[in-house]
Lab assay of single mutants.
Amino acid sequence: VPQRAWTVEQLRSEQLPKKDIIKFLQEHGSDSFLAEHKLLGNIKNVAKTANKDHLVTAYNHLFETKRFK
């Protein structure tokens, strides 16, 4: 089981690129989880459509539901 890579403050910070969060989610989330949160596909394309709040919610949801690969 992966550990949380970032704190809530870090997740919301401008310093953390959306692409980093997407990469983490794609590496650790199950396909059904990723599909549900519309996070499947090319990281660049996902970054265009997903806002930061959406990614933070998905990140927290992944750990709450433990839907890891």
Results as ranks from 00 to 15, higher is better:
residue 1 V to W: 14
residue 1 V to C: 15
residue 1 V to M: 11
residue 1 V to A: 10
residue 1 V to I: 12
residue 1 V to D: 10
residue 2 P to C: 14
residue 3 Q to F: 07
residue 3 Q to T: 11
residue 4 R to W: 10
residue 4 R to S: 08
residue 4 R to Y: 08
residue 6 W to I: 06
residue 6 W to A: 05
residue 6 W to V: 06
residue 6 W to N: 05
residue 7 T to N: 07
residue 7 T to Q: 05
residue 8 V to I: 11
residue 8 V to H: 07
residue 8 V to L: 10
residue 9 E to G: 03
residue 9 E to C: 07
residue 9 E to W: 03
residue 9 E to T: 04
residue 9 E to I: 04
residue 9 E to P: 04
residue 10 Q to S: 03
residue 10 Q to E: 12
residue 10 Q to H: 05
residue 11 L to H: 01
residue 11 L to S: 02
residue 12 R to D: 06
residue 12 R to G: 06
residue 12 R to V: 12
residue 12 R to Q: 14
residue 12 R to M: 15
residue 12 R to N: 11
residue 12 R to F: 15
residue 13 S to E: 05
residue 13 S to G: 05
residue 13 S to P: 02
residue 13 S to K: 03
residue 14 E to L: 08
residue 14 E to T: 13
residue 14 E to F: 08
residue 15 Q to R: 08
residue 17 P to T: 10
residue 17 P to G: 09
residue 17 P to S: 09
residue 18 K to L: 09
residue 18 K to N: 10
residue 18 K to Q: 07
residue 18 K to S: 14
residue 19 K to F: 09
residue 19 K to S: 15
residue 19 K to W: 10
residue 19 K to M: 12
residue 20 D to H: 08
residue 20 D to A: 08
residue 20 D to T: 14
residue 21 I to P: 00
residue 21 I to T: 01
residue 21 I to E: 01
residue 21 I to Q: 01
residue 22 I to L: 09
residue 22 I to D: 00
residue 22 I to T: 02
residue 23 K to R: 11
residue 23 K to Q: 11
residue 23 K to A: 12
residue 24 F to Y: 09
residue 24 F to T: 02
residue 25 L to N: 00
residue 26 Q to P: 00
residue 27 E to V: 07
residue 27 E to Q: 11
residue 27 E to Y: 05
residue 27 E to L: 09
residue 29 G to R: 00
residue 29 G to F: 01
residue 29 G to H: 01
residue 29 G to W: 01
residue 29 G to D: 00
residue 30 S to M: 07
residue 31 D to P: 11
residue 31 D to W: 15
residue 31 D to F: 14
residue 31 D to S: 12
residue 32 S to Q: 10
residue 32 S to F: 08
residue 32 S to Y: 09
residue 33 F to L: 04
residue 33 F to N: 00
residue 33 F to R: 00
residue 33 F to D: 00
residue 33 F to Q: 00
residue 34 L to A: 02
residue 34 L to R: 03
residue 34 L to H: 01
residue 34 L to F: 01
residue 35 A to R: 09
residue 35 A to D: 09
residue 35 A to F: 14
residue 35 A to N: 09
residue 36 E to C: 11
residue 36 E to M: 11
residue 37 H to D: 00
residue 38 K to G: 13
residue 38 K to R: 12
residue 38 K to M: 14
residue 39 L to F: 03
residue 39 L to G: 00
residue 39 L to M: 07
residue 40 L to A: 11
residue 40 L to T: 09
residue 40 L to H: 09
residue 41 G to D: 06
residue 41 G to W: 04
residue 42 N to C: 15
residue 42 N to M: 12
residue 43 I to C: 09
residue 43 I to D: 06
residue 43 I to W: 13
residue 43 I to P: 12
residue 44 K to T: 14
residue 44 K to M: 15
residue 44 K to H: 15
residue 45 N to P: 03
residue 45 N to A: 14
residue 45 N to H: 14
residue 45 N to S: 12
residue 46 V to W: 04
residue 46 V to N: 04
residue 46 V to A: 06
residue 46 V to I: 11
residue 47 A to S: 14
residue 47 A to D: 09
residue 47 A to G: 07
residue 48 K to A: 14
residue 48 K to N: 12
residue 48 K to R: 14
residue 48 K to H: 13
residue 48 K to W: 08
residue 49 T to E: 11
residue 49 T to P: 02
residue 50 A to F: 08
residue 50 A to W: 07
residue 50 A to K: 10
residue 50 A to I: 14
residue 50 A to T: 13
residue 50 A to M: 11
residue 50 A to R: 07
residue 51 N to E: 13
residue 51 N to R: 07
residue 52 K to D: 03
residue 52 K to G: 03
residue 52 K to I: 07
residue 53 D to I: 05
residue 53 D to V: 06
residue 53 D to S: 08
residue 53 D to N: 09
residue 53 D to H: 07
residue 53 D to Q: 07
residue 53 D to W: 07
residue 54 H to D: 15
residue 54 H to I: 09
residue 54 H to T: 12
residue 54 H to R: 14
residue 54 H to Q: 12
residue 55 L to V: 08
residue 56 V to G: 03
residue 56 V to Q: 03
residue 56 V to W: 03
residue 56 V to F: 05
residue 57 T to W: 13
residue 57 T to G: 08
residue 57 T to A: 11
residue 57 T to N: 11
residue 58 A to P: 01
residue 58 A to R: 01
residue 58 A to H: 02
residue 58 A to M: 06
residue 59 Y to E: 01
residue 59 Y to R: 01
residue 59 Y to C: 02
residue 60 N to R: 06
residue 60 N to D: 11
residue 60 N to C: 13
residue 61 H to T: 13
residue 61 H to C: 15
residue 61 H to K: 10
residue 62 L to E: 00
residue 62 L to N: 00
residue 62 L to I: 04
residue 63 F to H: 03
residue 63 F to S: 01
residue 63 F to G: 01
residue 63 F to P: 00
residue 63 F to V: 02
residue 64 E to D: 13
residue 64 E to H: 07
residue 64 E to C: 10
residue 65 T to R: 09
residue 65 T to P: 02
residue 66 K to A: 09
residue 66 K to H: 10
residue 67 R to D: 09
residue 67 R to M: 10
residue 67 R to L: 07
residue 68 F to Q: 02
residue 68 F to M: 03
residue 68 F to I: 03
residue 68 F to G: 02
residue 68 F to K: 02
residue 69 K to A: 08
residue 69 K to Y: 06
residue 69 K to M: 05
